[in-house]
Design a protein around this nucleic acid. Structure first.
Lengths: 191, 191
DNA sequence: CACCTCATTTGAACAGTGGTCAAATAAAAT
DNA sequence: ATTTTATTTGACCACTGTTCAAATGAGGTG
């Protein structure tokens, strides 16, 4: 009965995050317990609390990664060799794709009310939205106001939120997503 | 130590729902426990389980009421003495108002993923959406397609969801709500 | 009145949760 | 070889939803 593992197997934040990520994607924030995370790693739950102050901090560490992923995706799409209108479409669609392909993460990033988690969400959501808004603004050739961009964002958010709740995959709603994007862009470009 | 209360104070589903409603509005679904509900009524939690099979059933009973309220509100707005365009605005704004004035309920009605609760949500969401869609369709003078109405709904849903998460009141976002509605209706009526 | 029945209520029990912390352990530094 | 220090354990706390045998007492029957 050794109560401390050998040095090579010493627990790290990375290891915990890897295990948590798997469980988390599978079950969502609320249905993953600290004890479960410890169990898959072969450690007691106490050890997890040595590396993370609490559950919210652990899961927020994961979410930070995903704000980066979303930003990366937006930047990538913004550089595609397309006409502004097509690029704009790609960005709005890309947002939906991201949301529905990373449902558990989207949930924490934009949906969870839990105060504990919210306390850790500092600047990331604002920064990511700022990037989104800037990109959309320049691609719309300045025809969209701040307010209109915000409305577009909220409307995309509504789409993701709805289908996320019904646990549908992106591919299942692709057509609908495209039509939603068309609806939002209607009247901006005269085409 | 009497273990059964006198007949006049016998527990009813109504009494439980009244107590649950208060707690629920105050704290939201996840932060209300069956023991708390029992406590405010002066009964043990076991008694609650005699009248409701589980927490989900109890809270769903409350939510049924609120689908009715939303339908009632939509019907009321549809009969206001206004021009179609104004009426349409009033309906979209009314939806947002409802969502933000009954945040806890909106959460269960359209947001909670919990399978237990979802099992009880049967036809109500569809029926209510159907009413919304029909009303919007007729008020748009047939200029809006099924798909466009669905997009409008999702976009309103996104607005409510976002501000609900940030626990803002309807009055706090009224201006924003009006602009969002204008954005969604832009291009439909030639005004 | 006594007796019985049965709807109702209780509270102990179960398996789980997030979180804390003294004590045990072993690797590293002296 | 001894001390220090980082890490891990697991008992413990207060809580959750849920189940259920046992207790209770109101109402009906003889």
């Amino acid at each position: 009965m050794s109560s401390r593992k050998s040095a090579q197997r010493e627990l790290t934040r990375e290891m915990i995050m890897d295990a948590a990520r798997d469980l988390f994607i599978l079950k969502g924030y609320e249905h993953v317990s600290m004890r479960q995370v410890g169990k898959v790693l072969g450690y007691s739950h106490g050890a997890i609390y040595y590396h993370f102050t609490n559950k919210a901090e652990l899961f927020y560490a994961l979410v930070e990664e995903h704000f980066d992923m979303l930003e990366h995706k937006l930047k990538e799409l913004a550089q595609a060799p397309l006409a502004p209108r097509e690029k704009l479409e790609a960005i709005l669609l890309g947002y939906i794709e991201f949301g529905l392909n990373h449902q558990s993460h989207y949930e924490i990033m934009f949906l969870i009310k839990d105060e504990e988690v919210r306390d850790f969400l500092n600047q990331s959501p604002y920064e990511t939205y700022e990037l989104f808004a800037q990109t959309v603004h320049s691609l719309s050739e300045k025809q969209l106001s701040i307010q209109e961009i915000w409305s577009i964002f909220l409307s995309l958010h509504g789409f993701v939120t709805h289908y996320l709740r019904h646990v549908l995959k992106y591919e299942d709603v692709l057509d609908m997503a495209k039509q939603h994007v068309q609806f939002l862009l209607k009247g901006i470009f005269q085409s």
